[in-house]
């Protein structure tokens, strides 16, 4: 006990400093939504990185079994190929009854534009069938964001004008893909990154969503290429994209419900865990 008092007498100021800073960080994370999102995201990033290392190690251990099973699958596929060669016409068409995407119309309750981390609040929520992780579009030309949090009557959307929103996009008719991010704090322009520089692109090309994730269907028009540069030492273009829609005037939007997203996500996550 005596030692404890001595410790406090000696380092009391430093302990007080640390305690007060911890309180401040608690307040920041609890009461400021954008900082909380950043904190949660980055802690998830670190957790998943550790998981990744472990998964890689496990994969290495099971390489031989994987190899065997791949050999068996290969054999199977080759057998099927041979069969299909003789029966091409018997492959069934995709069933048009199973439309993958459902649109939920909604109105905008609140729309941030001028912050660094912008969010949008929709006036409909769980009751209308909105769930976290769904995409939000304005029409066939113009995307809005990704649903982040849902309550019974409201849904919070990470606007595309938020550096945390990264959207996989393609350039129409060119089969090249990139990631659309918001870097310049201008609500009418975004940046398409990670487009390999050996692809040919032209000013005025149309950017569409790629449909690689479960969030947006393929082919929603996003914007046109206004300008592009290659930074020295970089392997990819940095493309300035002029958006088709003006988010400052946003009033109505559609939430895209992918009927098969659960299926795809659970499949992908199970693949990642093994």
């Amino acid at each position: 006990m005596h030692n404890a008092f001595q410790l406090i007498a000696k380092y009391g100021v430093h302990i007080l400093f640390v305690v007060l800073e911890i309180i401040c960080f608690n307040l920041i994370i609890r009461y400021n939504p954008s900082q909380r999102n950043i904190f949660l995201n980055s802690s998830n990033v670190y957790a998943s990185r550790i998981q990744n290392v472990r998964a890689q190690f496990d994969q290495y251990l099971s390489l031989k079994e994987v190899n065997d099973s791949l050999m068996r699958q290969n054999a199977n596929l080759i057998e099927n190929l041979i069969v299909i060669e003789y029966a091409t016409k018997s492959i069934p068409n995709a069933d048009s009854l199973y439309l993958a995407y459902d649109l939920i119309p909604t109105t905008i309750c609140r729309n941030d534009i001028f912050k660094r981390n912008n969010h949008i609040t929709l006036c409909s929520g769980n009751r209308e069938g909105i769930e976290a992780g769904m995409g939000v579009i304005e029409s066939t030309a113009g995307i809005v964001g990704i649903v982040n949090n849902v309550t019974e009557n409201f849904a919070q959307v990470i606007s595309i004008l938020n550096p945390q929103a990264k959207i996989s996009c393609s350039i129409k008719n060119r089969n090249t893909h990139g990631t659309l991010v918001w870097r310049n704090r201008d609500p009418l322009h975004m940046t398409l990154e990670d487009v390999p520089k050996h692809h040919k692109i032209v000013k005025g090309d149309t950017i569409i969503t790629s449909g690689y994730s479960t969030i947006f269907p393929r082919g929603i028009l996003v914007g046109t290429i206004e300008d592009y540069t290659i930074e020295s030492g970089s392997n990819s273009y940095s493309v300035s994209v002029k958006l088709f829609n003006d988010l400052t005037k946003l009033q109505y939007a559609y939430v895209v419900k992918n009927r098969f997203s659960q299926e795809q996500i659970s499949l992908e996550s199970s693949e990642r865990n093994e």
């Binding site: 007080l16 007060l20 401040c24 920041i28 994370i29 400021n32």
Partner: peptide
């Protein structure tokens, strides 16, 4: 001084709608 600074920062935060940022 630390305690005074904490409350001063908290006061500014309440008006700036950024609880904890100025205090920290």
């Amino acid at each position: 001084v630390l305690i005074i600074a904490f409350f001063i920062g908290l006061f500014i935060d309440v008006f700036d709608n950024s609880l904890g940022v100025h205090a920290g």
